[in-house]
Computed example of a mutant assay.
Amino acid sequence: MNIILVSVDALLCALVMTAAVEYLRKIRPVDQPLLSLSFYLVAIAAFGSFVEALHGQCVSSFTVMLHAGVVLYAWARRDYVFQQILR
C-alpha cells in the first residue's frame, strides 16, 4: 500500500510543480505579488516532496489528499495550465 501512495504522491507532486511553474510563467509577479509568492512556495514544496517520494520516504495519505486538492484546484481554476501538458 505504501508503494502505491508514494507513486501517486510523486505523480501529484510533479503535476503540482508543473502547474505552479506554468502559472508563474504566465503572470507578472509585480502585478500579483502575494499570489506569485504562494505559487513559488507551492512549487518549491512540491519539488521537495517529489524528491522525498523518489527516495522512498513514507507518505501520509493526508499528504496525498493535499496534493490532489492542489491539482484539482489548479485544474478547475487555471485549466489553461494543463492544456499545454496534455497536448
Rank of each mutant, 00 (worst) to 15 (best):
I3Q: 04
I4C: 01
I4Y: 01
L5C: 03
V6G: 01
S7H: 01
A10I: 02
L11S: 03
L12A: 05
L12C: 06
L12R: 02
A14I: 05
L15P: 00
L15I: 07
M17P: 00
E22L: 15
E22D: 10
E22G: 10
Y23P: 00
Y23G: 11
L24T: 06
L24N: 09
L24M: 13
R25W: 00
K26Q: 14
K26H: 12
R28L: 12
P29L: 11
Q32Y: 11
P33C: 12
L35P: 11
L35G: 13
L35Y: 01
S38G: 01
F39H: 09
F39T: 01
Y40I: 14
Y40A: 13
Y40L: 14
Y40G: 06
I44S: 11
F47C: 04
F47A: 02
G48Q: 06
G48N: 07
L54G: 05
H55L: 13
Q57V: 02
C58G: 12
C58S: 15
V59F: 01
S60E: 08
S60V: 04
S60R: 10
S61W: 12
F62L: 13
F62Q: 08
V64T: 09
L66A: 15
V70I: 13
V70N: 03
L72P: 00
Y73T: 15
W75A: 13
A76M: 11
A76C: 15
D79T: 10
Y80Q: 13
Y80H: 14
Y80E: 12
Y80L: 09
Q83Y: 10
I85P: 10
I85G: 14
I85W: 12
L86W: 13
R87C: 10
R87A: 05
